[in-house]
Design a protein around this nucleic acid. Structure first.
Lengths: 204, 204
DNA sequence: AAGTTATTTAACCATTTGGTTAATAAAATA
DNA sequence: TATTTTATTAACCAAATGGTTAAATAACTT
């Protein structure tokens, strides 16, 4: 049986690199494995992306952009923090369901190489507008007063940890029942909202 | 200046291995670096711990035992979920403050090698008693009714994520102000309690 | 079609890495 | 003290790994 030869290109390599790096991390990833998964010769990786570091940086930057919450347009359209929260939880949990390995990948690579990688992704994420918006809602008496950054960390904790901590949580709390855990994750946006509702909102 | 020769032993090697593995992960760790940091010859690592894998497993098991919440005695002594929560947050956040790199280490290694490592740490962590206790408190009307496992995940999220997500959170929300972030972490036990109080407890 | 450029590959290469060996030094034991 | 066991080391080794090179093939240009 002849080996089916497909078009090999920069994009196929990037795609393979994404998979391998996110699965194994920078240190665990092998250029040969990326080449194999792309159906390409290893030298071709160096032809398009000069070094492993450089290829990784491309992957990381893109991954970070995906993972980092973006607020631009929806922030402006929305009329209260309450509806923002509903909206945000919906899209962000959906995103994590589509990219469940991103959190741990981003966080561990960032920890292993904080300065260099932070440099690479500088300016991609910006919480300024959100912070202002929440602050205003607190001043207006719609949201319970607390440290805004703390509130954001709490919300992100509740979103991200179930994905990042899955290898542990699923085992010890769901007795390794994958279906059950996926159900839990699928409900996550609503669960978080319900959980937070009574804590956060005044005049409800 | 003569090089000071100290006693080199199994414990020094383990100590060095702990540091290096937790800092770099299994794939990023180098036996030579562990040897150097222990002030020992590389062959000595293989004398005491036969392979890198085996040395890593020892380190991982110990690290997991430290990281995993333990409930034994305090669970029995405590009279309500409310006081349990106060107690738990205090000791667990203190533990994380003392071992801030553990969460990301455990979680990423567990994700890279779930089955093997889960096998190694099987039985170390057990949430059964806690779940029963919380369930009873819900039935008694002291705690708001919800899925118990979900509640536990929420609490652990709020505890662990600020540490695991520090490389990202500190930059984007604290503008890389280390002192500010450490303050935040130091307050964490109280903050979490205050945040949860209004959500969780009935008749307060 | 001829010439030029871009893509792709097989074969190498130097370095790093986990691991081994055989010999030495230090303790323990008799 | 003599001997046996334990601890420690320098020197190696084979495999793996990121990276290079020079040649071949395919794709454009003219």
């Amino acid at each position: 049986m002849a080996i089916k030869k497909e078009k090999v290109s920069k994009e196929l390599i990037l795609e393979a690199a994404r998979n391998v790096f996110i699965e194994k991390g920078f240190d665990g990833a092998r250029m040969q494995q990326i080449a194999d998964r792309a159906g390409a010769n290893k030298a071709l990786l160096h032809y398009y992306f000069s070094t492993k570091e450089s290829l990784f940086e491309d992957v990381f930057k893109e991954a970070f952009s995906t993972f980092a919450p973006h607020f631009h347009d929806e922030l402006l359209k929305v009329k209260s923090f309450k509806s923002f929260l509903v909206f945000f939880l919906d899209i962000y949990i959906k995103l994590l369901l589509n990219h469940p390995y991103l959190p741990l990948f981003i966080l561990s690579e960032l920890q292993r190489n904080p300065d260099k990688l932070a440099q690479i992704v500088k300016g991609i994420v910006d919480f300024e507008l959100i912070q202002q918006m929440i602050k205003k809602e607190m001043d207006d008496g719609n949201v319970v007063k607390m440290d805004v950054r703390e509130l954001i960390v709490n919300i992100l904790s509740l979103c991200i940890f179930p994905f990042a901590g899955r290898p542990m949580m699923q085992r010890v709390l769901w007795k390794n029942d994958e279906v059950g855990y996926v159900n839990f994750l699928n409900q996550r946006a609503e669960s978080i909202y319900k959980f937070l509702e009574s804590t956060l909102f005044i005049n409800n």
